[in-house]
Design a protein around this nucleic acid. Structure first.
Length: 407
RNA sequence: GCGUCGGUGGCAGAGUGGUCAAUUGCAAUUGGCUGUAAACCAAUCGGAUUUAUCCUACGUAGGUUCGAAUCCUACCCGGCGCA
């Protein structure tokens, strides 16, 4: 008996609802997963997560390995216990940091490409200070793994698939991801292919490392990650390859341009087994969440809600607004008239704008709370609409009101 | 009253004859943020503009100089000291 199981409830085309069962409880899917990178969702208490409707939280291997160290988390009773969250948990493998500390280091690129693109220096196999300064990166990739310079103190570290899995065993989340390489969307086809093949080898090694640990196998499920950048043929190939391995669930990771997201998603999802959960890594934006749900994804994690909130932008049914902007200094109306989030009742735009402008952390907390609540509710409503059989209308109406455009 | 130090763009505070419309920080204005090196980052920040330039500006008024925020004189204002 595996610790992770998934049962489909309703389907509508490729979209579906289901129940993802974990040792720490069931997750109604589709579900949004708040990100608590360092074992804490920035600005939000576990009890608040609960009141917002969060069902599961995701933390990060790279960060917790560096600080406080995985043994501290393990000694603290594992990720959930350590952070005071009794529900299900996930950890990311550190594969995203291969990108964010590698190709993206010191640049303005993100995992979602838009507009003009430049070609980025590829990873190199030898690591030393000279290489680092030459390439301006904190992470350098080779076939066996990734060598990192800690962003905290400059010390040198190395992740291999086996090491990532070992750390994730110590962290003890219910679900964790195989070590992968998240590529930059600006990489050309040849590099996307090369990285994808490397990710496949790492997936196999991650899976093997996990299955060898019988105790961890009883408690934790491992998800394999599909890569392939924006290219549909690579996405198809990657999905087939990863699906052929005995993972407990799947993640779709990596990069694409906004326009290619749907194609990449479709190319991958159709080759993933229906009876296993699918996680869309690092997504997302309201419209992208609804797209992912429509294409059959079950869970999503994204830092945008809390980061945008901290930086002063809040979601509203009629699109995002930046509260630090002059006009909101005097708007004495609710954050979003159409979406009142538990814990933020009674706070006006003008009030939160003032808190944000004056550097009061309460402003960031309220905005984060609102955004997280907004996104969780969005996914919850989408789930309800799937159950009710009117998801297409729900999506269409939301997109029309939020973006002012049709699908 | 005498002496002394000082008055610079919204604020703080550099500059002490040309490379100064004036370093820097804060504030302000506007962008950005999708598996969090992110309570962060970027641009703008005297006026006009054909963005080359032109005008107005470093307490006020004069002066020296080819050229002054920078030197000189007077005045106004402020800190400190002595009366």
């Amino acid at each position: 008996m595996r610790p992770i199981s998934f049962k489909t409830e309703t389907t509508k085309g490729t979209a579906r609802t289901g129940i993802l069962s974990t040792p720490h409880g069931d997750i109604q899917t589709p579900a949004f997963v708040p990100v608590g990178t360092k074992a804490g969702v920035k600005g939000i208490l576990p009890e608040q997560l609960l009141s917002l409707g969060a069902q599961v939280v995701l933390a990060n291997t790279y960060h917790l390995y560096l600080q406080p160290g995985e043994s501290t988390v393990k000694d603290g009773g594992g990720l959930g216990n350590f952070m005071g969250w009794s529900g299900p948990t996930m950890t990311d493998s550190g594969g995203f940091q291969v990108f964010s500390l590698g190709a993206a280091f010191g640049r303005t690129i993100t995992k979602i490409a838009k507009g003009e693109e430049d070609t980025v220096t590829q990873g190199v196999s030898v690591f030393d200070e000279e290489v680092q300064s030459q390439h301006g990166q904190l992470a350098v990739i080779d076939e066996q793994g990734v060598t990192f310079t800690s962003h905290l103190d400059g010390s040198l570290h190395r992740f291999t698939p086996e090491r990532s899995v070992e750390i994730q065993h110590s962290l003890g989340a219910d679900m964790f991801f195989a070590f992968d390489e998240c590529t930059s969307p600006t990489e050309p086809y040849a590099y996307q292919k090369e990285a994808m093949e490397r990710t496949h080898k790492w997936a196999e090694r991650s899976l093997k490392a996990h299955r060898q640990n019988l105790e961890a196998n009883r408690k934790q499920g491992i998800f394999g990650i599909v890569q392939g950048g924006r290219y549909e043929d690579l996405r198809t190939e990657s999905a087939k390859e990863i699906a052929s391995m005995d993972f407990d669930g799947f993640g779709i990771g990596g990069s694409f341009s906004k326009e290619d997201m749907m194609g990449a998603l479709q190319a991958a999802v159709q080759h993933l087994p229906k009876e296993k959960p699918r996680h869309f890594l690092g997504i997302g934006e309201p419209g992208d969440l609804l797209l992912g749900i429509a294409e059959g994804m079950d869970t999503f994690d994204c830092v945008a809600a809390t980061r945008l909130g901290r930086h002063g932008t809040i979601y509203t049914k009629r699109g995002p607004i930046h509260l630090k902007t002059e006009k909101y200094k005097s708007e004495h109306e609710p954050l979003d008239t159409e979406t009142i989030i538990p814990g933020t009742e009674g706070f006006s735009r003008a009030y939160v704008s003032h808190l944000l402008r004056s550097g009061e952390m309460l402003g960031q907390i309220i905005a984060s709370l609102h955004n997280l609540g907004f996104i969780i509710r969005l996914v919850d409503e989408a789930r309800a609409a799937l159950h009710a059989g009117n998801f297409d209308e729900y999506r269409r109406d939301f997109v029309y009101t939020y973006y002012g455009r049709t699908l």
